[in-house]
């Protein structure tokens, strides 16, 4: 039986950029004057995230995250906060949809510029057990956006 992960796939998963975000997460900490706070847990592995979002109309003016988890969940959250800050809700939702496509192995998503550094996470698609780690922050953000719109 062949293992699902070759050495090349492992290297693709743990790129320097991902380890850099894991060890020096951007936008980590508490956000004063946040409008929304969402907590999410991954019950399987114990990863947890608390996301605080400040809005200016429909625009995410600032956001911070806290919590702990594996390199994939932390890097994904860090990259996400950098990418969506200053963007409008609809645009963020569209990026989120494409990021989900990327995690489901849609190769075309890997070429899309609007995903920015998140494209470094494309290797996660080869590790089905880890996809939920990469999506944890996005689930929190989408919940925050949904709460804002109601």
């Amino acid at each position: 039986m062949s293992r699902p992960e070759s050495a090349a796939e492992l290297s693709a998963l743990y790129q320097d950029l991902i380890l850099d975000h894991y060890r020096r997460p951007r936008n980590k900490g508490a956000l004063e004057n946040a409008d929304t706070r969402v907590e999410m847990k991954n019950p399987l592995c114990g990863d947890e995230i608390a996301l605080q979002v400040a809005f200016d109309g429909n625009t995410v003016s600032d956001l911070r995250f806290s919590g702990r988890g594996c390199s994939i969940s932390q890097a994904s959250a860090s990259m996400m906060t950098q990418l969506v800050k200053g963007k409008e809700a609809e645009e963020i939702k569209a990026i989120g949809r494409r990021f989900r496509d990327l995690m489901l192995g849609d190769a075309s998503a890997a070429g899309e510029k609007e995903l920015g550094q998140l494209r470094a996470l494309s290797g996660v698609a080869r590790f089905p057990a880890r996809v939920k780690c990469a999506l944890l922050a996005w689930n929190a953000l989408e919940t925050a956006l949904a709460e804002r719109s109601t």
Binding site: R3, L10, C45, C70, S71, I72, A129, R130, C133
Partner: peptide, 13 residues
Amino acid sequence: DVHPHDLATILDG
């Protein structure tokens, strides 16, 4: 600082 989840993925390889 290697998260157990990362460790398990690498070991699985």
